[in-house]
Amino acid sequence: METKSMQGISYRRDLCDFCGTCVAVCPHDAIELSENDLQITEKCTQCMNCVYICPVRALEGSDE
């Protein structure tokens, strides 16, 4: 299992489908998604839109 934590959100690359749905609902353009990785930048306000929208639950609030 490959997990990395950014801005209080943990990301599982092995679950991620790189679909970009998180990017589309991020109100602050805080997510950078390439073809094989995802970064959450300091623009993040932890609104959790990305966590709740992710169709495969690759993103989770770290404290949940």
Binding site: T21, V25, C54, V56
Partner: peptide, 12 residues
């Protein structure tokens, strides 16, 4: 171009 949560259909 942001999509609101209610208007985004999340699909599998």
């Amino acid at each position: 171009t942001k999509t609101s949560m209610k208007d985004m259909e999340t699909c599998a």
